[in-house]
């Protein structure tokens, strides 16, 4: 089931400089959806559109199967969000900030202690948020987003400003909440490695356009298809005849064919050697996920 869906989402301040172009997003329920793109790709703008903070020039947004604009209160009751720098009342303590969130979302008071423990801020609960480090602010922002046990949590670059330990903690927390409570996460990031480690699904945005959307497996198989196996033998003609089911070509004096898996390489090798062909070299080249991402967003 799709929990969040956008159709033909468009946004610009000036018509000739579109910021978000025709974005179709489908976030499956129960997923951790990584929204990946370099800085300035339109991630934050898309998130603001999804939350109704910006008015889309065209397109529509459905969350929990309801149209956003006419069901704001019902939808926001089930969403937690953390956009860019955390929104905190810096003159108030961590606990007082949660108190405000509690009243907005009509949440029972015992949840405050629960989320403070969850993000590890029990000790700092009575300190003013203004005196928090960036990492602590980020964690308090997350506590506020999680307070009312939302079904969907939208986080914009949640690991920004966290130290390496904090990044791992945040990632594990997201995975744990997703696994144990079935919360759907929509997480933006400019780091592929982070998305790869944490997410079940990914959408790649670049210059306002969505370039890829699907599960991490789908992304990986798309990437695999872009890799090539190079084989050097003493008899390319004979080898091609043996491998005639595959799309082999001779490029720069070597046989090439699309790489599928390591097992495929081993099987091919055995096939050629058994047929009496001398195999000098087996070499897989082409983009790994990182290169593919860089290539897409170049």
């Amino acid at each position: 089931m799709v929990i969040l869906q956008t159709q033909q989402l468009e946004f610009y301040f000036r018509r000739d400089q579109p910021i978000v172009k025709n974005v179709y997003l489908n976030v499956p329920q129960g997923s951790i959806f990584g929204f990946l793109g370099p800085n300035g790709a339109g991630k934050t703008t898309t998130i603001r559109l999804m939350l109704g903070l910006l008015r889309a020039k065209s397109g529509n947004i459905e969350i929990f199967g309801q149209e956003l604009e006419s069901n704001r209160s019902a939808i926001f009751q089930k969403i937690g969000s953390l956009i860019e720098s955390p929104s905190l009342y810096l003159h108030l303590t961590g606990k007082q900030n949660l108190e405000i969130a509690r009243h907005y979302t009509r949440t029972p008071a015992f949840r405050i202690a629960e989320v403070l423990t969850l993000v590890g801020l029990e000790q700092a609960a009575n300190k003013k948020a203004g005196a928090y480090s960036l990492g602590m602010k980020q964690r308090l922002g997350l506590a506020i987003a999680l307070l009312h046990q939302p079904e969907l949590v939208i986080l914009d670059e949640p690991t920004n400003g966290l130290d390496p330990g904090g990044i791992i903690e945040m990632r594990e927390l997201i995975k744990q909440l997703n696994r144990d409570l079935g919360i759907t996460f929509f997480v933006s990031s400019h780091l592929l490695a982070e998305v790869e480690r944490m997410c079940t699904h990914v959408g790649i945005i670049h210059q306002g356009s969505l370039l890829f959307q699907g599960s991490i497996q789908e992304l990986k198989s798309a990437q695999m298809q872009q890799r090539t196996l190079y084989i050097d033998t003493n008899d390319h003609k004979k080898a091609q005849a043996i491998l005639m089911d595959l799309r082999t070509q001779v490029v720069e004096g070597k046989l090439t064919l699309p790489f599928e898996s390591k097992a495929q390489v081993a099987a091919l090798n055995q096939l050629l050697v058994t047929a009496g062909i001398e195999v000098y070299e087996l070499n897989v080249q082409g983009a790994d996920l990182e290169e593919m991402f860089l290539h897409m967003t170049r």
């Binding site: 939350l51 109704g52 903070l53 209160s73 019902a74 926001f76 929104s87 009342y89 907005y104 979302t105």
Partner: peptide, 14 residues
């Protein structure tokens, strides 16, 4: 000052 308009306007209040 607190950068909280975006917070206030994504709460279940009109």
């Amino acid at each position: 000052r607190s950068n909280t308009w975006k917070y206030v306007f994504t709460q279940p209040f009109s």
